[in-house]
Computed example of a mutant assay.
Amino acid sequence: MSAPATMLPGFAAADVEVATDAGPPLRIRAATAGSGPPLLLLHGHPQTHATWRAAAPRLAERFTVVAPDLRGYGDSGKPPSDDAHLAYSKRAMARDQVRLMRALGHTSFAVAGHDRGGRVAHRMALDHPAAVERLAVLDIAPTATMYARTDREFASRYYWWFFLIRPAPLPEEMIAGATETFLRTHLREQSGTPGVPEEDLAREYLRCYRDPDTVRAVCEDYRAAATVDLEHDDADAREGRLLTRPLLALWGARGTVGRLYDVPAAWREVSGAPVDGEALDCGHLVQEERPGETAARLEAFLALEPDHR
């Protein structure tokens, strides 16, 4: 049987089965390359691991890079959910990725996550502090912060946060009736750079989005973010749990997050560790619009002390 395909140059893809706390093992599609300290790259919505195509090869020159498809996305498994949306909580999605990294031989690692992947990385660093050495989040503020400070401008710009959480099957069936229009409009509104995403990447995202199970999983991801994920965040706040690992926040200066939030300040509210941040001249798709700059800033942030190299 031939190896699964990946759009990341120089990377090899494989399907890895990871244990779940309820139900059968889950298939996670992951692309890997490079040598050196391990680095986990997590994509957002509506992307797949292919979003790292331009940035990952540079990072693989210094790191052992693992770029998976999150649970429910791309070619990873898409388990059933329920009214509590627990199967698509960021806690469950983070646990998948920790188990993936262990299966690949990495008990501790750095993680960089864009969009939904950043929210998974945030939860991962809270729930698995021994596994996460450093944390980078791309073009997000904490989920609870963004919901708590929602206003008309945010709701207008991020309308899908409120559309996708409607009870099934409304958003699923509406997207099924206009899949390509919905996806391409969403991608166009995310990007601040003409020609990004490139057409072959857009077609890859569309290939995955044409699967009704992907759309179902996407909706469940967002439903979880508006319910059980906020419950987990509330519990952390009550218990005084903060991030304990150094954090880098990168965001697009022409994107919604950069316009509406003081991004480093928002992350300092939930962190007891150093937080650094920088805006790049782009929209939301930081790693696609400014891949070289993104990789360079991640390299600098993730550089190990000389005696640990």
Rank of each mutant, 00 (worst) to 15 (best):
P212E: 00
A56S: 11
V111H: 09
M174Y: 14
E204L: 12
L59F: 09
E189R: 13
A202E: 10
A22R: 11
V98L: 09
L242I: 04
A94M: 06
I140M: 01
P37G: 15
L280H: 08
T20A: 14
G292F: 10
V270P: 02
A60T: 07
I28W: 05
A148P: 00
T51Q: 09
D139Q: 02
C208H: 14
A55V: 01
T179P: 02
A19Q: 09
V286I: 09
Y147T: 05
L135K: 04
E220P: 00
M101P: 04
A130E: 07
A92H: 15
A295V: 07
D221S: 05
A125D: 07
Y261T: 08
E289S: 15
V16Y: 03
P306W: 06
G72N: 07
G44R: 02
P25M: 05
K90S: 13
P37Y: 15
L183R: 09
A176W: 15
R216K: 02
L302P: 01
P57N: 11
R184Q: 11
T6C: 06
S271R: 07
G195K: 11
A30T: 13
L242E: 06
A253Q: 10
A121F: 03
T20V: 11
A266P: 13
C208P: 03
S191P: 02
D21E: 12
R157M: 00
L100F: 15
R116T: 12
G72C: 02
A112E: 08
R102S: 08
E198Q: 09
L304V: 13
T227V: 00
L285N: 12
A5R: 13
R210D: 10
T48H: 11
D276C: 01
H45I: 10
R238S: 05
T214H: 00
